[in-house]
């Protein structure tokens, strides 16, 4: 299968320095936060690729760079073989840009409260001068709302319904790729099930590709075909879903699985994981996970592990086998 998205050596650095006068007075140097470091992966057409990780792992930053809300500091993102940031053919870039859409976490913050649902949904089309007669009504029915809802305002809908409106808006420009950043984290379980089912149905119907960003392993296990695990801005492991869940190779992935609550874990006494995510401004030397890793050896503190291919997995750990 062909890769719809290919990400190579993607890096994003944020300048988190204090204002220059403070630096001058306090004699402090500039501070940089490397949110994403040297991340490479491919997303196959019509598949669901999930990025998982805890807060500060860089998963949302990668999502934003793929939809071009943020420029990368270095590295390249190719969509359908074209690097939108560097390609000089404006028309081609514009065409491919309409192939990418995004669904955000908070359906309360991502809809303009002063716009009618009809205008919200049609905007990706009308903003490019397209015709949108009846488009919103059609899409609303497709996402399980009624055509009559087009004349209403966002406040008239519940959280789950709003997320359906966000999905309808993302579908308006007939995209190939939808980046979903924690699309169900703000929703209740029963509503989450409805929205996830809707997303699966739409994927089949429109031949969509999803980049699914989530911290919830159970949701990822249900949705994804391939999963990348991020820790402190780096990809530590990547594998097809079944391989990752049956045989996690990186100690961080193993810890995540062990720590996640289980529905049948009655009275389970887990040895809680040690430590917390370190300060990303001064990340640990070598493997960033070594201060928390139960298997760390001297080499881990000195040398950063490169991504290696092990069977169907790719893993960045000196000791994984």
């Amino acid at each position: 299968m062909r890769a719809l998205v290919s990400v190579r050596h993607l890096t994003r650095i944020f300048d988190v320095s204090k204002p220059w006068l403070n630096r001058l007075l306090e004699g402090k140097p500039k501070a940089f936060l490397q949110a994403v470091s040297d991340v490479s992966f491919d997303i196959e057409e019509r598949s669901v690729y999930a990025l998982v990780g805890e807060s500060g792992s860089g998963k949302s930053t990668i999502g934003k760079m793929i939809v071009h809300l943020l420029p990368p500091s270095s590295g390249a993102i190719k969509i359908e073989g074209i690097d939108l940031a560097r390609d000089s053919d404006r028309q081609r870039v514009e065409k491919i840009r309409t192939d990418i859409q995004m669904v955000f976490q908070d359906p309360y913050a991502s809809l303009n409260p002063r716009w009618r649902v009809r205008d919200i949904i049609a905007e990706p089309v009308t903003a490019r001068g397209g015709k949108a007669d009846g488009l919103a009504e059609r899409l609303l029915e497709q996402v399980g709302l009624s055509a009559a809802d087009a004349g209403k305002y966002p406040h008239e809908f519940s959280g789950g319904q709003r997320q359906r409106i966000c999905i309808a808006r993302a579908l308006a420009s007939e995209p190939k790729l939808i980046v979903c950043d924690e699309p169900t984290s703000a929703l209740d379980v029963s509503v989450q099930a409805q929205v996830l089912n809707l997303m699966s149905d739409l994927k089949e119907e429109f031949g969509l590709t999803y980049l699914f960003i989530s911290h919830d392993l159970t949701v990822v296990e249900h949705m994804a075909d391939r999963i990348g695990v991020l820790y402190l801005g780096r990809l530590v492991e990547e594998a097809p879903r079944d391989v990752l869940f049956s045989d996690p190779k990186h100690p961080y992935t193993q810890m995540l699985f062990a720590a996640a609550p289980k529905l049948d874990g009655f009275g389970r006494e887990v040895e809680p994981p040690k430590g917390e995510i370190p300060d990303p401004i001064n990340p640990p030397s070598g493997c960033a996970y070594h201060p928390r890793c139960p298997r760390a050896v001297a080499r881990c503190t000195l040398e950063r592990p490169e991504m290696r291919t092990l069977g169907d997995s790719r893993v960045a750990c000196h000791l994984a086998e």
Partner: peptide, 23 residues
């Protein structure tokens, strides 16, 4: 019953999650 069934954990291996209709 519906709440338990709609958690992704309980629907392991199913293509679609069980859902409670409505809200």
């Amino acid at each position: 019953t519906g709440l338990m069934a709609s958690t992704p954990l309980a629907s392991k291996g199913l293509k679609r999650l069980n859902q409670i209709p409505g809200a």
